[in-house]
């Protein structure tokens, strides 16, 4: 579904655990796309075809052409499993933070680009300027992606609707996720895009709604 400008959201609608995916259409040369967190190829318990479902949803939105870049907010399989297949089929590049690089490589993934704190520019005539934030806590190399022009934050598994990401997985850390959330809460956000549809699609719209979500988490969960 088109959210704003050329940003599309794909909320996971299956029964198994899989992530929400996001796509910036036609932002790279040759009208190639950027996919964020393509998720599972096939979900582990119910064997749902995650990647095929994603491709079908993209087709419904009229997304044609190929993916040139896959950005992973972090290297957990429910976010990154399909990245290798997209890389192979589309000659796409895979990018993530170096601190999650080993987790990704252990599962057979190949990293083309390491993303660090700073600006990521995507150019295809016009430019899309994104800010990459290192937001550890759920995983050591978790990143979040902020699009200042449209005030969008792609939050991965740092923050959900009225909840936060788990910190009990290897490399997780309660103290650092708190710091990450504190920092992100200072951004000017109109759209908070979460990594999962936990009890809510995970697309939180409106400055007030987003603020309320941060306030709820800070007062009920983090302290």
């Amino acid at each position: 579904m088109k959210l704003v400008n050329n940003l599309y959201t794909y909320v996971w609608q299956g029964n198994d655990n899989n992530c929400n995916s996001y796509l910036f259409a036609d932002v790279l040369k040759g009208n190639r796309h950027v996919v964020i967190d393509p998720g599972h190829i096939t979900t582990p318990s119910y064997r749902e075809p995650g990647l095929i479902k994603l491709f079908k949803e993209m087709e419904k939105d009229g997304i044609e052409g190929t993916t040139g870049l896959v950005i992973l907010t972090h290297a957990h399989p429910d976010h990154c499993e399909a990245a290798s297949m997209i890389r192979e089929q589309n000659s796409a590049l895979v990018a993530l933070h170096e601190a999650d690089g080993n987790i990704y490589k252990r599962s057979g993934g190949i990293v083309d680009i390491y993303l660090e704190e700073g600006e990521l520019q995507l150019a295809n005539g016009s430019q899309t300027r994104l800010q990459i934030y290192h937001s550890p806590g759920h995983s050591p190399g978790h990143i979040t992606i902020y699009w200042p022009e449209e005030k969008v934050l792609i939050a991965g598994d740092v923050i959900f609707y009225r909840s936060t990401g788990r910190v009990d997985l290897p490399g997780g850390n309660a103290k650092t996720i708190k710091q990450s959330i504190e920092r992100l809460s200072g951004l000017d956000i109109n759209y908070l895009l979460c990594g999962h549809p936990y009890g809510h699609p995970g697309i939180i719209e409106g400055k007030e709604e987003v603020q309320q979500n941060f306030d709820f988490i800070k007062s009920h969960i983090l302290f």
Binding site: R32, L69, A95, E98, E116, L120, A123
Partner: peptide, 13 residues
């Protein structure tokens, strides 16, 4: 750059 990817956040592996 030729693909349209650049910026201070980008470090080729």
């Amino acid at each position: 750059n030729g693909l349209g990817i650049s910026g201070s956040a980008v470090r080729p592996n």
